[in-house]
Design a protein around this nucleic acid. Structure first.
Length: 569
DNA sequence: GCCGTTTTCGGCCCGACTGTTTTCAGTCG
């Protein structure tokens, strides 16, 4: 069993305990354990088999949780979870994710209306019965209904990191598979996963697939194709086993997008060719022109091979025809990571651990950007602590020859657009990221003014997660993006591509718009522990979808050039 | 439930908004 699954069971139990109104400190311990386990580099299952070792080695895990973990590894659940599930069915849990619904409200709803699903809650709100409860009114009914509808829209979609884990696991089980579909295009959320492979023994490959232990339900099983729901969340995976001669055509076909494929097929027809998932053929005589490789298919259509991230029929075919496709940024171009948190605020690792992890990734530099004081819950830094931290970082760099650390801050942009910390304190820091974490329900005009004012701050280097969206959860807040991009370009403030798979903010259309306005970018992980640093790849995918090359992204610069860009000696 | 002790108990990040009230509980970050 994976660490993430153990963490999920504990988190679910903590949610249920919260609804039941149990001791908040005990619940906090569970939540601490969840993030400790998620961040833990070693599989607990392996660790549990090693004599002389105990889960209490992990900070945040004591005797009680260690025994719960042992129980989970033995039988897939533990006593307290079973108890809680006897009280409340797991179907109540998704309702906790709705805006305006917390554990207390949910408990009141369950007790008064005996609801157990989101459908029940929707009905209560639609019938305007929620308002019969104390302290609940029409506004909450509306808010919940809005939130339910948004939840429905995102249901059945998954974040990229989740899909990546499924793909990696399946690849271990199946051998060489090639993902296609929106996953291969690097779309920020995916609905299902398409996997392709070639094999001399298709039946054997299909059999291996349907016997994968993570499979929840086999939806279809044929000679060359099978579909199944995989994992607890039930993401659909389609596997296709193909003959080698049509692999490239199939890869092209199943990678899409639909719009891109329509344009390609039209192009083929103009050339008296026909393109399908089996290959590219002459209309007269049916002779195969291409199909073994994707490159061959594009070449036969008079096009350069198009990177999957660009295949949205938004100019890439024209560029491929004229040989003007951009040289896209790659993960190996990245020299540093400029947004991360440590224990100083709400991160889990120390500055030293982050620097070490960055070194392993081959980086030359990082910026530590903990939260500022407005995020009290994250133990954000005030002026005094920020300046002291900058001193500590300078000391670290003197003593340490490895990765160069820039002192930074993720400074809250307050309601009026001013910075959370005084400018003289910010001036002590090397790299200030400005981010909005509150008052996201402003009108567009007010929000635009707020961001414009923030961009006036002389210390600001980058605008963090600029639209504030959280995938599958919260929409971007409204503002005039074109004006902000123009102002950022004029002020020399970089726009962040936040690589956290929950955000992936900015996304492709905005990146292209911003690039056209002359903006520069940084790709940053917003890591809260060392493992998160690996999310850089998702940020790079986003940048590629936005047609960005290395010269558009500041953290491709080697250390000395980056310092020069910041005017740091 | 964890942790660290002033070591077997007592403390454990908190400030502000929202919608509902008419003084504040619950949510959010």
């Amino acid at each position: 069993m994976e660490n993430s699954e153990i963490a999920r069971l504990l988190a679910e139990t903590a949610d249920l305990m919260e609804i039941a109104g149990e001791d908040p400190f005990r619940i906090r311990s569970y939540r601490n354990a969840v993030s400790a386990i998620e961040a833990y580099p070693e599989p607990l299952e392996t660790m549990g088999r090693q004599p002389g070792r105990s889960f209490t080695e992990i900070p945040g895990i004591g005797k009680g949780l260690a025994s719960a973990i042992r129980e989970i590894l033995e039988r897939g659940s533990f006593e307290r979870r079973d108890e809680m599930l006897a009280k409340y069915p797991p179907t109540v849990l998704p309702m906790l994710r709705l805006q305006g619904v917390g554990p207390k409200t949910l408990r009141a709803l369950i007790e008064h209306f005996h609801i157990s699903t989101m459908d029940d809650l929707e009905r209560i709100c639609a019938e305007q019965r929620l308002r019969t409860l104390p302290r609940m009114g029409a506004k909450l009914e509306e808010k919940i209904l809005r939130s339910i509808s948004q939840f429905r829209q995102s249901a059945g979609r998954f974040t990229l990191d989740f899909a990546a884990n499924v793909v990696e696991d399946l690849a271990k089980h199946l051998g060489e598979v090639t993902p296609a579909g929106s996953f291969r295009r690097g779309k920020e959320t995916v609905g299902d996963i398409d996997l392709l492979m070639t094999s001399k023994d298709p039946a054997g490959a299909i059999q291996r697939f349907v016997s994968y232990p993570g499979i929840k339900e086999v939806l279809a099983k044929g000679e060359n194709k099978a579909s199944a729901k995989v994992g607890f969340e039930g993401i659909q995976v389609d596997l296709r086993v193909l003959p080698a001669e049509s692999f490239g055509a199939a890869l092209q076909y199943f990678t899409g997008s639909k719009e891109h494929n329509v344009a390609l097929r039209t192009r083929a027809v103009h050339r008296r060719l026909t393109l399908n998932e089996y290959g590219l053929f002459r209309q007269e005589g049916g002779e195969r022109v291409a199909g073994e490789t994707e490159h061959g298919v594009y070449e036969a259509l008079g096009l350069a091979w198009i990177p999957p991230e660009l295949r949205e029929n938004s100019g890439e075919i024209e560029a491929a025809e004229t040989g003007s496709l951009p040289r896209l940024i790659e993960r190996s171009d990245i020299r540093g990571d400029l947004h991360m948190h440590t224990r100083e605020s709400d991160g889990r690792a120390t500055l030293e651990e982050m620097a070490e992890a960055a070194k392993t990734l081959g980086y030359q530099y990082i910026a530590i950007t903990d939260h500022s004081k407005a995020l009290a819950m994250a133990n954000g830094l005030d002026e005094k602590r920020a300046v002291a931290f900058a001193r500590r970082v300078r000391e670290f760099n003197r003593q340490n020859g490895g990765v160069y650390v820039f002192s930074g801050l993720e400074c809250d942009i307050k309601r009026d657009g001013s910075m959370d910390l005084a400018e003289d304190a910010l001036a002590e820091l090397d790299f200030v990221v400005g981010s909005i974490h509150s008052y996201m329900n402003m009108e567009a005009e007010e929000m635009t003014d707020r961001l414009l004012r923030a961009l006036e701050s002389p210390s600001l280097r980058a605008l963090g997660h600029p639209t504030g969206r959280v995938l599958l959860h919260r929409e971007a807040f409204p503002f005039d993006f074109a004006r902000i991009a123009e102002a950022a370009a004029a002020r020399g403030v970089a726009l962040e591509i936040n690589a956290s798979p929950e955000r992936l903010d900015l996304h492709a259309p905005l990146l292209r718009a911003a690039k056209a306005k002359g903006c520069r970018f940084v790709i940053s992980t917003d890591a809260h522990h060392c493992k998160h640093l690996e999310n850089m790849r998702f940020g790079v995918l986003m940048a590629r979808r936005g047609w960005l090359g290395p010269s558009d992204v500041l953290n491709t610069l080697p250390l000395e050039q980056f310092k020069a860009a910041l005017r740091i000696s």
